[in-house]
Design a protein around this nucleic acid. Structure first.
Lengths: 245, 245
DNA sequence: CGGATAGTTGACGATAATCAAGCTATGTGG
DNA sequence: CCACATAGCTTGATTATCGTCAACTATCCG
């Protein structure tokens, strides 16, 4: 608690979750301050994953879950016809890698979209800890159920929404998640490519591109390659949810 | 084990999971035979839900998870624009109602597609039991992670597959799940309407109808209202997975 | 500097949605 | 038990959205 690590720097490998700026979003939120040490003991902090590298691959033994510290990760699986299907983007403070509890092997692969650091939490030790720390087991259930609900949002989006609604929804999702980290909700850098956006949203790249320029022409967005500025937040919300109903 | 209940009848309210023909698919599979009694103690068996009635509604307090005994259940949520979005069909032997662990309130609603019986498992008592029965907690994680993976299948289907592939996939899914219950994999009755199929698969009713008749004309299926016979299982698999790649 | 990767834009076509009409079960009340 | 209403399903005609193909530009990186 009274360590000398610099809290601000990304470079220093953190020795304690209590120093981490993301503690209010991450696993620690389920744990009493006095139990944080026990969480610290099992967590391996500050693992680096370079852009384009895998954190794990489909088929790998399931050993740990991961908390993103900096950067961004995509998870994807391969469809029967050999294509990639992205099923999630993970930003700092978000927990990932829970697929594979079922079979003890990861079903998805996880790849860094940019240089990324993660904290690794060995699952069997976490599982033991849940038996001692009452809040943790429930929190863990909650994380999984959150995962399920987020996927249901995506299902809804894919089943019901058109291209404009899908893209508006994704932008707003990223905006909200940035807000949780006290970053700007209106100006940010997309960590993923247009191809990845299209893949995730079930759209062709060309459609993604066209919708973004359309939004730009309408004054809703200002897009400069991966930098996005939301100029008309209201309008974007409108498009994301109702569109024509 | 040596009870006098008639195993075949749907009417009799079962006093024990060990008598249930679905025990090899359901919660009991995680529990040693000698611990089954403890599971029995907390489970409320043979709750009836009539066709069209709700098992729970979005917003209801989350108290229990449910195992379908007979019949079929759909779970759905309401989109921002007020439409229904079906996100799962549950057949006998399948566990449902795990949404809502997160918030303590159900996010989805669950409605019977036909007259249905379910076993109710109070969640707080199940949670206690997981602490005593080692296999159960892991099994529970596994069920949730299975849920996640099934949703990912649906996401893939919605993002990448065309109408024919989607419908072929759904038919094969139902076929497989019937197989698990030792029912015919090639001839069965669909518990849901065409509208519900379309809703689930992100297609208009008309498209569902057209694809089914197309399959029929090609000799892949014989469809008689809700009764389906798969005549060319191979072909259907082909359509479901590759289609053109 | 040059090759590769990422992104944009236009033309065209295909797939599936929408609109409209008719048909077929299912079930209810007379 | 039949008639009628309703919900469920099918089919056709038309339209719109989005995907595909293609060419071109911008950006990144060794």
């Amino acid at each position: 608690m009274t360590e000398v690590h610099k809290a601000g720097s990304c470079r220093t490998i953190k020795a304690s979750c209590s120093d981490c700026s993301l503690s209010s979003l991450c696993l620690p939120l389920a744990v009493q301050a006095e139990d944080l040490d026990r969480l610290d003991e099992i967590i391996k902090q500050g693992q680096r994953v370079e852009k384009g590298q895998h954190l794990f691959r489909s088929g790998d033994e399931f050993k740990a879950i991961y908390a993103v510290r900096t950067g961004a990760i995509k998870t994807y699986s391969i469809t029967p016809s050999g294509e990639e299907q992205i099923n999630g983007f993970y930003l700092p403070g978000e927990i990932m890698g829970m697929d594979g509890i079922n079979t003890n092997h990861h079903v998805n692969s996880a790849k860094a979209l940019e240089s990324t650091t993660v904290c690794e939490v060995p699952f069997n030790r976490l599982e033991e800890l849940t038996k001692v720390l009452p809040g943790l087991q429930r929190h863990f259930f909650q994380m999984m159920s959150k995962e399920i609900r987020e996927e249901q949002q995506l299902i809804m989006l894919l089943a019901k929404k058109n291209a404009e609604e899908r893209i508006a929804s994704l932008l707003l999702s990223i905006s909200t998640r940035n807000g949780r980290r006290r970053l700007s909700t209106t100006a940010f850098r997309l960590p993923m490519t247009r191809v990845e956006i299209g893949n995730y949203l079930g759209l062709a790249v060309e459609t993604v591109s066209r919708v973004l320029t359309r939004f730009q022409k309408q004054g809703i967005l200002a897009v400069e390659s991966k930098e996005v500025r939301i100029n008309d937040y209201q309008k974007l919300c409108q498009i994301a949810t109702i569109q024509e109903g």
